[in-house]
Design a protein around this nucleic acid. Structure first.
Lengths: 342, 342
DNA sequence: CAACTCTTGGCAATCGCTTGCCATGTCCGG
DNA sequence: CCGGACATGGCAAGCGATTGCCAAGAGTTG
């Protein structure tokens, strides 16, 4: 940095004619010092352009006024909402906010937590790729809150994909589809498992067949393989793990001359930016990601995973809703399904 | 956190039977201590699960091994490349990386720099909204590197929009367009100014008319107003400040029944995710944002703005190239331009 | 073998702030 | 007018590392 020496509480103390401790208190514990004195201190600080050192403060007090959010892929629009929400809430609480990319790797995630541990008051883990056990272990030594992931006893905020998946199946069923395939996300993805379970059970309630394909990486590029796999199954309804994948599927389907939604319907999850721009516009399950992000920080503020209130391991579940666009339509009338209909 | 007490160098020292200073050196200055001793120390540390406290270390040494990147809008895909690049390079250098959103506000940007100042070694400012003078001032007290922004004497990495804008105009001219409008970005945006200048001068070289409209916020929502403004000018070629805006324009044009590219051509900047998904797919100027991000961190590592080498105020300029898709086409043949052609 | 240079480890001060504890001063009720 | 309860400011001991300086031992050299 430029300046030779930053001003410290001692400089301010001298300038204000009080002790350093008073300066400290004037800032971090205002009610502990007389209003008039406090005024002098602040004035002196102002004059000197004093800025407290978060480092020194944290070192002594153990509180860093900082939280970190770990995200598997920072460029995946799926996380935008949560990131914005978390960041906004953190700012409100006057916390500095660190965002970190774990590149879809459980190892990097764990490592990052370990590294940051001393410099942060808590972690928000978005769609953690860590196995449940590992998360529980970490929660013993660190302050955690989860987004779109649930682990027994750890505070979390999730978008309700269970009910959402039900909505998807309802929609598909009402369009006459008799079966669906789920193009699954990464194995370590908790959501992927949940979604599949919910889809399957909803499907069986409707008497629909359901099959799971994959896993596929949750990105557009993987759409080709996913679409091909689905086509090989003669599927008429494809539910993709997320919008990125769904958009990739749409692309591939177009290449192969499969008309959407006439010959096949496609559904995604997340309602990301771009879902309404692609052709046909994507039917997808939208959820309040930003609220999930806010909620997670909120939980952290309330104590996070270490707030071992035996009462309720704080869980926040946020409602999702299906946004119906153009990528879903009536099931194609061919083969024996045509016979059934006429 | 969970554990009652973290292990310190003193614990390790005792365990290894050496002095604390030796432990410290074993980690931060390995060659200062004998290989054998170092071995013992590391073993002891391992046994105790010791993790150095970045805070304590930073407090004394003044080095935090952390850099912060400030971005006007973290969810704007324009910045993804730069963010990824910067983050990657930082990770390589074993720096912890803080990402912070300034919400398009110069004040927040300045404030954030001030706040983080003591806890980071340097800043990467992406598309800073700060006036040049303010940046120069800050550079005196803080270590800065710029992305997609240039300020006299401060290291920066920019994508070459000047030449890029030339490419856009060339393309448009070769399609027979005789005039263009630039739908400008925010006033504080340095890029916006640069782009306009480059467009204008390239246009005049081609004998094309050029007009600037705006400013518009650089997001899809603003596309409506931008498109309307352009239409009111009878423009046949619209160059939008960025892809987000361009996509919004496309949307509005479709609503108003203006065929693209038959009746109007649209060009964007950045080639973000989604630019190839919208209909028609967007012609846009692509640049290596990730390399710009890497380069900026690199510059920071080399000393940043405080490395007052009077020699060259390190500037990195990265090449851009036009990606031609479907949103641009031959100028419409109507009115007197039809007469000219026949 | 004396005189020197290197290596290597330890001592102790320091970074800037927080906080437990104590000393005063003030204000009351009795 | 006295003792107790509060309010307020100061002292000094840390927090967990880094680092300048010193001393002892090892290795070299003439």
């Amino acid at each position: 940095m430029g300046s030779p020496k930053r001003t410290t509480i001692y400089d301010v103390a001298r300038e204000a004619g009080v002790a350093a401790s008073t300066v400290s208190r004037a800032f971090s514990n205002p009610r502990r010092v007389n209003a008039v004195t406090r005024g002098h201190v602040h004035a002196a600080a102002e004059r000197l352009g004093y800025r407290p050192s978060p480092l020194a403060s944290a070192l002594q007090s153990g509180r860093t006024a900082t939280i970190a959010m770990l995200v598997p892929d920072i460029t995946n629009p799926h996380f935008f909402g949560a990131i914005r929400g978390a960041e906004g809430r953190a700012r409100q609480a006057d916390l500095t906010f660190i965002l970190s990319n774990t590149e879809e790797s459980a190892a990097k995630e764990q490592d990052q937590i370990e590294r940051l541990s001393r410099s942060v008051d808590g972690f928000v883990l978005a769609a953690s790729r860590l196995p449940g056990g590992a998360v529980a272990d970490l929660a013993r030594d660190h302050n955690l809150a989860l987004v779109n992931r649930e682990v027994e006893g750890i505070p979390s905020a999730v978008v309700d994909n269970d009910s959402g998946s039900g909505q998807i199946v309802d929609h598909l069923a009402s369009l006459g589809h008799r079966s669906l395939v789920y193009l699954s996300g990464p194995e370590q993805s908790w959501s992927a498992g949940r979604r599949w379970n919910a889809l399957r059970s909803a499907a069986s309630e409707h008497g629909m067949a359901a099959e799971r394909l994959g896993p596929f990486p949750p990105m557009t590029d993987a759409g080709g393989a996913a679409a091909d796999a689905a086509l090989a199954r003669d599927a008429t309804a494809l539910v993709a793990h997320n919008d990125l994948l769904a958009i990739g599927v749409l692309k591939r389907l177009a290449e192969r001359g499969v008309a959407v939604p006439e010959e096949a319907s496609v559904v995604g999850y997340d309602d990301i930016f771009g879902a309404d721009l692609c052709v046909p516009a994507l039917t997808t399950l939208a959820g309040p990601g930003d609220r999930a992000g806010r909620a997670a920080v909120e939980l952290l503020l309330r104590g996070g995973s270490r707030s071992g209130t035996l009462t309720d391991p704080h869980r926040v579940v946020l409602p999702s809703h299906l946004v119906i666009r153009e990528s879903t339509g009536p099931a194609p009338v061919t083969g024996h399904s045509r016979r059934l209909l006429h």
